[in-house]
Simulated assay, not measured.
Amino acid sequence: MIKLGVKQELTVVKIVDFGVYLGESQQAEDKDTVLLPGKQVPEGIKKGEKLSVFIYRDSSDRLIATVRVPKIALGQIGVLKVAQTSRIGAFLDWGLEKDLFLPYKEQTKKLHEGEEVLVALYIDKSSRLCATMKVYHYLQTDSPYAQGDNVTGVVYEISDNFGVFVAVDYKYSALIPKQEAQGNYKVGDELSCRITAVREDGKLTLSAKQKAYIQLHEDAESVYEIIQEFEGELPFDDKAAPEVIQREFGLSKNAFKRAVGHLLKEKKIELKNGKIYAL
């Protein structure tokens, strides 16, 4: 059976002016063959010889063979560039003549021409090859990492219920739990994280925070820089509402209070009249 979306070895059944027809065997019937266009046919090819080809659909939705190797195959994940966007979806450059369609409903953020996105390749209900940014079920769970390791990954989806989903090394399944996901995250962000747990199913639990003493210094530096951006006078102190702190600093109220306490100890700031002043 000729398989859509994968590379396979097929036999030359018939040679015509515009290419060659390939099948699983030399005795394959016409209905069980696929065309390899003439411009891709190796010189001197003969009936009965085998060729390694990838099967997809042409612009007329017919099965077609190519000797080119696409950037991803069925069920695989890859980073592809957006070639074009439209009301119904986006078209991605995956190394073949016809761009790969990414339906609007399979996008997890608004896309722009020229940007790169992490996608998986699947077959839709109309038997067409399509891309999806919802890659959760395509990610691997056999990473070589252990608790405490530092890793890098890309955000591919954000859930109000669960947290921030990350593809570590662009292929391993990981999550920053909701309670850990302090800050402003966007799909496509590249993160450096620490593994806090390796679950029984192999999926990774991450923290974007460093160990406590390192994180405290980083948070304090970030808070101090933002106070300076307010020209040295922050119009609220550590008693501000959590949502205000989250909006301005991307920190929880407790993390903000710890950072302010550290800055007070270092005599970099002072609190006065409900405001914070840089010294």
Rank of each mutant, 00 (worst) to 15 (best):
Q26W: 03
Q26H: 03
Q27Y: 05
Q27W: 05
A28W: 00
A28Y: 00
A28S: 08
A28H: 03
A28L: 00
E29C: 02
E29F: 02
E29H: 09
E29N: 08
E29K: 12
D30R: 05
K31Y: 06
K31A: 07
K31I: 01
K31S: 06
D32E: 06
D32S: 04
D32R: 04
D32K: 06
D32M: 01
T33E: 02
V34C: 07
V34E: 11
V34H: 10
L35E: 03
L35C: 01
L35R: 05
L36P: 00
L36N: 06
P37G: 07
P37E: 00
P37S: 07
P37N: 07
P37C: 07
G38R: 08
G38M: 04
G38S: 05
G38A: 07
K39L: 07
K39H: 09
K39V: 06
K39I: 07
Q40E: 08
Q40P: 00
Q40K: 06
Q40H: 04
V41L: 06
V41Y: 01
P42D: 01
P42F: 02
P42G: 02
P42S: 00
E43V: 00
E43Y: 15
E43W: 14
E43A: 11
E43P: 10
G44Y: 10
G44F: 09
G44A: 05
G44V: 00
I45P: 10
I45Y: 08
I45Q: 12
K46I: 06
K46M: 08
K46G: 06
K46R: 10
K47T: 07
K47Q: 11
K47E: 08
G48R: 13
G48N: 10
G48D: 11
G48K: 11
E49L: 12
E49N: 13
K50L: 06
K50S: 10
L51Y: 13
L51W: 13
L51N: 11
S52E: 15
S52W: 15
V53I: 12
V53K: 14
V53H: 14
V53M: 12
V53P: 11
V53W: 14
V53F: 09
F54W: 11
F54M: 10
F54E: 09
I55W: 01
I55D: 03
I55Y: 05
Y56L: 14
Y56V: 13
R57F: 08
R57I: 07
R57Y: 10
D58G: 08
D58K: 06
S59W: 13
S59H: 15
S59L: 13
S59I: 14
S59N: 14
S60C: 11
S60A: 15
D61G: 13
D61Y: 15
D61K: 15
D61C: 13
D61F: 15
D61I: 13
D61T: 15
R62I: 07
R62N: 13
L63F: 09
L63R: 13
L63T: 02
L63V: 01
I64S: 12
I64M: 09
I64R: 12
I64F: 03
I64E: 05
A65E: 00
A65M: 03
A65H: 09
A65R: 11
A65I: 01
